[in-house]
Amino acid sequence: MDVKTVNSSSARQSFSDILNDSGYGGQRIVVTRKGKAVAAVVPIEDLEAIQALEDHKDVEEARRILSDSKSEFIPWEQAKKELIKK
């Protein structure tokens, strides 16, 4: 899929069009400032896919940690004391 690039000044002036292009047209739009990419407007489906991948990664990490219960865990009472100190 092609990615459209707009500078931040143009993005401010045509924000409604950008939202329509992304939300209804599926267009991915990168916003630049001084030639550097600083943000992106993407269809909600893209964001949901990214979040699902992150969730999957988190679940896999939790499973890895839980499979070796002796590593990376400290007793609740110890954790509570350390949190209260801060």
Rank of each mutant, 00 (worst) to 15 (best):
Ala37Gln: 12
Val31Gln: 06
Gly23Gln: 06
Gly23Asp: 07
Lys34Arg: 14
Gly25Ala: 12
Ser8Asn: 04
Ser22Cys: 05
Ala39Gly: 02
Asp55Tyr: 02
Val59Glu: 13
Lys81Phe: 03
Glu77Thr: 06
Gly25His: 10
Gly26Gln: 05
Gly35Arg: 11
Trp76Asp: 04
Ala37Arg: 14
Ser9Asp: 02
Ile50Thr: 07
Ala49Trp: 05
Glu48Cys: 08
Gln13Ser: 10
Lys80Tyr: 08
Asp21Trp: 06
Ile65Met: 15
Glu61Val: 09
Asp21Phe: 04
Gln78Pro: 00
Gln78His: 11
Ser9Asn: 04
Glu77Cys: 07
Ile29Asp: 01
Asp46Val: 05
Glu45Ala: 12
Ile29Tyr: 05
Arg28Gly: 00
Val30Cys: 07
Leu53His: 09
Lys4Glu: 07
Val41Lys: 10
Ile29His: 06
Ser10Phe: 11
Glu48Met: 05
Ala40His: 01
Ile84Pro: 01
Met1His: 10
Tyr24Ser: 09
Glu77Tyr: 11
Leu53Ser: 13
Asp2Trp: 02
Val30His: 12
Asn7Lys: 10
Ile74Phe: 14
Glu72Asp: 15
Met1Cys: 10
Ala39Trp: 00
Gln78Ser: 11
Glu45Asn: 08
Met1Ala: 14
Lys85Tyr: 01
Glu61Phe: 09
Ser69Asp: 13
Pro43Ala: 04
Gln13Phe: 14
Glu60Thr: 02
Ser71Met: 15
Val30Pro: 02
Val6Ile: 03
Leu47Ala: 07
Val42Pro: 00
Lys80Pro: 00
Arg64Ile: 03
Ser10Leu: 09
Ser8Gly: 00
Asp17Gln: 15
Leu83Phe: 07
Ser8Pro: 00
Ala62Lys: 14
Ala79Cys: 03
